[in-house]
Computed example of a mutant assay.
Amino acid sequence: MAVLVALGAFLMTLAGGWTAQRVTDRRHLVLGLAGGLMLGVVGLDLLPEALRTAGGEVFGVPAALLLFVAGFLLAHLVERLLAARQAAHGGEECAGRAPEVGLTAAAAMVGHSAMDGVAIGAAFQVGGGMGLAVALAVVAHDFADGFNTYTITSLYGNARRKAITMLFADAAAPVAGATSTLFLTIPVHLLGGYLGLFGGVLLYLAAAEILPEAHHEHPARSTLLFTVGGAAFIWLVVGLAGTG
């Protein structure tokens, strides 16, 4: 059952990526929506779950929050290092976004999607009701994952072929994750720590890259509405999953 549900996540991820490709003439709206979806996933889904499952404190601070900050700083450090290397080899005109950052971020999203599949499998091991609730959240927000994976990969200057490759990898990841639960179990506290770290990376990309780019050339009210709508959509998904 868990693998069948993960196939639904596969299709939703592809649908999200397809949507991101089809609206290139409204790029500022695409980026605004992606930023809102990422903000919603981090603040309303990843971070709360990390705080519930990571457990323990380090010098009075929850371990999940420390890893969240570490993820934010790690994303910033990686981007600066890659941008500096690109500028050194290509001059000032190449000192923009490094394609490696986009691929790295997309790879992290693939890893997150695999953990989504693991979450589905683990929830079904607990019970059918729990499995369906988790499946609802995963399948719905995998549309956002696909949308964001394609958008992030493309935003950093990668070719369309690479963006599509990362999209398909992201779509297949939940199926692989759900299948893996037939053979192994990941400790809950490790999963919580990973969610905190990944949440920090996503927040950096949304706040420092995606949203500024969305408003750079088109500081329109519609862009802001799409951002708010993206965050509200994730709130709806989380709320429906919580009442399931």
Rank of each mutant, 00 (worst) to 15 (best):
G117L: 04
G32F: 01
M166W: 02
R27H: 10
Y204N: 06
A108D: 00
S113K: 03
D25E: 15
A137L: 11
T223F: 05
A140E: 09
L65C: 00
Y204V: 06
H28W: 12
G196I: 07
L81K: 12
L31M: 00
T153G: 05
D145T: 04
G128E: 14
G60K: 04
R27D: 06
T151D: 10
L7H: 00
R85A: 13
T243D: 13
F10V: 04
A34P: 06
Y204W: 14
G177W: 03
V237Y: 06
E209D: 14
Q86R: 15
T165L: 13
A137V: 08
F183M: 13
I234S: 03
F10E: 05
P174I: 04
A107F: 13
G16I: 01
L37N: 06
L240C: 14
V238R: 05
A2H: 12
L155R: 06
G90E: 13
V175W: 09
F124D: 00
L47F: 05
G121M: 05
A15Y: 00
H89F: 08
A83V: 11
T24I: 14
L167S: 09
S180K: 03
G8C: 09
G96A: 15
L39C: 05
G35R: 05
P219E: 02
V110R: 03
A206R: 03
I234H: 02
A20T: 04
L155Q: 06
L203H: 08
A119C: 08
A176Q: 08
